[in-house]
């Protein structure tokens, strides 16, 4: 009897909390983890009826999940290509909305075991470089930076090929790349500037000239299978608007290019 009373008391207490009317499932690029958690808190405080749950991974992996029909409301990608692919396949409601920009950084572990002082050192034999799987946005951006470095006047001959030879692993996503450089398991990696900043003193950034750096454009879409398209679209609009920008900016994200 007392158990019953206790159980019903718990139930009543549970109902007492204002349960959000809707929960949006947001799949987001791994590089958005910290910023989106903050965005989730900020959004919940101003939109009491909406709760956000996140899943972070490589944008390419998340795009595949959306294609497979995963219960997704919003997909926020570290590039425009992956959302556009969904838009073109008719798997979204509306077009992709750019909401942030990022740059790349070249990081080494704090101890800098390979003694890397400039990007040209990445081509030295024996340097262990990390990147992500070929279709993950960070790997594509890194390839572009490497191509730009190779085209610089005075670049070592065969720079791009040497960098490719020095690559020891293609990790799942940008966050895994950062984690293994922080652990000191690899000598260097191209990562997002925001991730380099979040890693703090655990890594050191090797200066990259602006002319070889690239701009990463982040874009979000509302998935066709969204259970609450209106709430999902409202979140995307918030993200791309002044409120979203002011939440993302402290993490180092720029306005969309």
């Amino acid at each position: 009897m007392s158990v019953l009373v206790a159980a019903s008391a718990l139930l009543v207490a549970g109902c007492g909390h204002a349960a959000p009317a809707t929960t949006l499932t947001v799949l987001a690029a791994a590089s958005l983890r910290d910023a989106f958690r903050a965005a989730g808190t900020a959004y919940a405080s101003t939109h009491p009826g909406v709760a956000l749950t996140f899943s972070f991974d490589a944008s390419s992996a998340l795009r595949a999940q959306v294609e497979q029909g995963a219960p997704v409301d919003v997909f926020a990608s570290a590039d425009v290509a992956n959302p556009d692919q969904l838009v073109n396949a008719g798997r979204t409601i509306g077009p992709a909305t750019p909401f942030a920009g990022n740059a790349l950084a070249l990081i080494v572990p704090a101890a800098n075991p390979a003694g890397i002082a400039a990007p040209a050192d990445l081509a030295r034999p024996g340097v262990a470089l990390l990147t992500a799987s070929a279709n993950v946005p960070i790997a594509i951006y890194a390839m572009r930076v490497i191509a730009n470095l190779a085209a610089e006047p005075g670049a070592p001959a065969g720079f791009a090929a040497a960098v490719e030879r020095n690559t020891v692993s293609r990790e799942d996503n940008a966050a895994a790349v950062v984690a293994k450089v922080v652990l000191g398991e690899a000598d260097a990696a191209f990562v997002y500037a925001t991730d380099a900043r979040a890693a703090g003193a655990a890594v050191r950034s090797i200066p990259l000239p602006d002319r070889v750096n690239v701009t990463a454009a982040y874009a979000a879409v509302v998935a066709r299978q969204a259970h609450d398209p209106a709430a999902a679209a409202a979140f995307v609009a918030w993200l791309a608007g002044a409120d979203g920008r002011s939440v993302l900016a402290p993490f180092g994200f720029a306005p969309p290019p």
């Binding site: 799987s133 020891v168 692993s169 293609r170 990790e171 799942d172």
Partner: peptide
Amino acid sequence: IMFAGNFEGRT
């Protein structure tokens, strides 16, 4: 994938 990484032909 955590310890050996992911590289074609090697791991």
